[in-house]
Amino acid sequence: MRKLTYLIATSIDGFIGDESGEAEFFTKYVDEEYLAYGFEELPEMMPTFARQHFGIDDRPNQRFDAVLMGRGTYDVGLPQGVTSPYGHLKQYVVSRSMEKAPAPEVELVSGDMVAKVRELKRQDGLGIWLCGGADLAGQLVDEIDELVIKTYPCLLGSGMPLATAGFAIREFALESVKSFSGGNVITTYSRQR
């Protein structure tokens, strides 16, 4: 059975962006060492245009072959004409208001997201990457099998949280911690059921 992995960037104090979800400022903390690790260990998390730019577009997907993103996450690239941000993955965009996907490679999803994720998990393939945002993560919090938290060395004080789920204790076990000389840390947790 496929896993749903919430792989997300966050500040030390747990915010994935400002109040609107903008998170471009995290790129300030990406250095050569961190990029090299991403190229080697998580090449599928790079948008297709970035994979082409860095010459890694021929690298096979290692962990994921599908990406699930909320409308706000998807909309980030639209002003630059990026309608298929992760063309190397099967792309699902959750939206109640979009009537037609801007690209044929993008499948719009609405309705019962838990049922949709359970359906995707039953299909053959690699894992499913929950790319963001906080509302979608909140809706799917009980379906998340793994957390991969990319923590950047900054405090924001306020902003968009990791997930907008109601209070409940949801236990995860620490699987690994990878730290980088620039202060970034990637922490992986698996769901304890």
Rank of each mutant, 00 (worst) to 15 (best):
V76D: 01
P43Q: 09
L4T: 03
V114Q: 07
K90V: 14
E146S: 11
P102Y: 02
F172L: 09
R71D: 04
Q62W: 07
G21I: 04
P102F: 00
D65V: 10
T27Q: 13
E146C: 11
L156T: 09
F49R: 12
G14Y: 06
A165L: 11
L120S: 06
V185Q: 12
T27N: 15
L7I: 09
H53Y: 14
E143I: 02
E24V: 08
S97A: 08
Q52V: 15
L78G: 03
A168V: 11
P79F: 02
L136M: 10
T10L: 00
Y29I: 07
N184F: 01
P79M: 01
A50F: 15
M69R: 05
F172S: 06
D65M: 10
Q123F: 07
F167V: 14
V67K: 04
L120A: 08
Y6A: 07
N61L: 13
L4H: 04
A163I: 07
R59F: 15
V106N: 00
P85R: 02
S179E: 15
L140M: 02
L42A: 08
V94Q: 02
D18T: 03
D124Q: 13
I128G: 03
G127A: 07
R96I: 03
G72P: 07
I16D: 00
S110V: 01
F25D: 05
V141F: 12
Y92S: 03
L162F: 12
E32L: 11
V106H: 01
E171W: 11
I16S: 04
L156P: 05
E40L: 08
Q139V: 11
Q123G: 09
R118C: 09
Q123A: 15
F49T: 10
L68A: 01
G125H: 03
T5C: 15
F64M: 10
R170C: 08
A163L: 11
L130T: 01
G77A: 00
L147E: 10
P153I: 10
G87H: 00
E41K: 15
V30Y: 14
E24Y: 12
I16R: 02
T73F: 00
D135H: 12
N61Q: 14
L108W: 03
F172E: 06
L89P: 02
L35R: 15
I128R: 01
R2W: 09
E175A: 13
H88D: 03
M1I: 10
I8M: 09
L89T: 00
L130Q: 01
D75C: 05
E99I: 05
S179G: 13
Y152K: 09
G14C: 04
N184A: 07
L120T: 07
C131Y: 10
G159L: 03
F49D: 13
A173R: 14
A36D: 15
G81P: 04
G166E: 15
L4Y: 06
Q139R: 12
T5F: 05
H88F: 01
P60T: 13
L156G: 07
L4Q: 06
Q62K: 15
T10W: 00
V30Q: 14
G133R: 05
P153K: 11
D18L: 01
L156V: 11
A50N: 11
A137V: 07
F180A: 08
V148D: 08
T83Q: 02
E24H: 13
L108D: 01
A173V: 09
A36T: 13
R170H: 13
D75I: 01
V141K: 12
P161D: 07
R63T: 15
E105A: 12
T10V: 00
E107H: 13
G70Y: 03
G138L: 02
R71G: 05
